[in-house]
Design a protein around this nucleic acid. Structure first.
Ligand code: SF4
Ligand code: SF4
Lengths: 164, 164
DNA sequence: ATTAATTAAGATAAAAGAGTCTTAAATCAA
DNA sequence: TTGATTTAAGACTCTTTTATCTTAATTAAT
């Protein structure tokens, strides 16, 4: 898997928060988010804690508490989120696991992999949470992870007006 | 990690076999290979068993036994090895883990990721074991995974004439 | 045939990743 | 202040991956 599960959850959650932030001010409840995204509450909490200590989100305890983006969603890239959870490995590691590799003594697949991982980095760096979340709304995309019957009911399409 | 450890070992081993095949005929001993590549013998054996059942290598028991490539190394691509061990997932899976994604309702990072994974596939498909192993010799590259003192001694540079 | 060498196969163990549960700490509202 | 709500933190469990160990099966050489 290219991104760890925790990392994809983190991205999804970040996008969710960015989306919520653009419509209603205040903190987004992790409980609610975990339900809508269909991600285990406690697991999601842990992931968000990583994002908190990475300075990407802030959190607040108590009623009306939750999490919120710390900076303008336009200024937060997907790379920021990925690095906060999975680290830079994806963009720096050697594909074949040979230590100490580099330009001097590159392994046989170096050139291709170096290009590809640079493209990956560039793509994620150029994609802000704001842009990405916006496109979700524009394209009326689904968002949450469907699992089971409940999921099929709940997550049909997110991005249209929801009750409440 | 993009490729599983087993998969990188499989690639390394395949290249090793391709390299040996080009100089001395016959089967390559897994025991010797595991020492030179610094990969656990039993683990490597299992990985090679996967390559065997995938039809990439043949094996032979007993003295003078070992493994050998089943086809011409020019006709075996890195994709073949990767798919045999890790499956097609890397080249088909959704980056964000959203099920049922595709061209119709693509997630926000679809276009970039689709391009990138296609490049990945192409790069690995166009790289044969023969080409890759050859380049290892040409560039006088190191090959094995160094670990610990013994490794530093043994694996200094492979690709030059070895004794015996 | 016997023996040694070597891969096959399966059981087991250790490590890492993913997920759950419990308790504590902070915050708001009454 | 009290109680309800919500995140923080850590212990714990489950699963997958990685690695090891043991036993069997096959082959070559004597
Ligand atoms: S592609 Fe570059 S970083 Fe990756 S193994 Fe080869 S030399 Fe190392
Ligand atoms: S990039 Fe394509 S395959 Fe990956 S999550 Fe988005 S829609 Fe799915």
């Amino acid at each position: 898997m290219v991104l760890s599960k925790a990392c994809t959850y983190g991205i999804l959650a970040s996008l969710y928060v960015a989306r919520e932030a653009s419509r209603s001010r205040g903190y987004v409840s992790i409980g609610r988010m975990s339900e809508e995204l269909n991600i285990s509450f406690h697991f999601l909490t842990k992931i968000l804690q990583q994002l908190t200590s990475a300075g990407i989100i802030t959190s607040m305890k108590g009623p009306k508490g939750g999490v919120a983006l710390r900076r303008d969603p336009k200024e937060i890239s997907l790379v920021d989120v990925i690095v906060a959870i999975d680290g830079m490995g994806l963009f720096t590691d050697c594909l074949l696991g040979l230590p100490g590799c580099g330009e001097e003594k590159p392994c046989p697949v170096h050139d291709d992999w170096a290009d590809i991982r640079a493209s990956l980095f560039q793509a994620f760096r150029d994609k802000s949470l704001a842009d990405t979340a916006l496109r979700i709304d524009e394209l009326n995309l689904r968002f949450a992870l469907p699992t089971g019957a409940k999921a099929a009911r709940d997550n049909a399409v997110i991005g249209r007006g929801r009750p409440e």
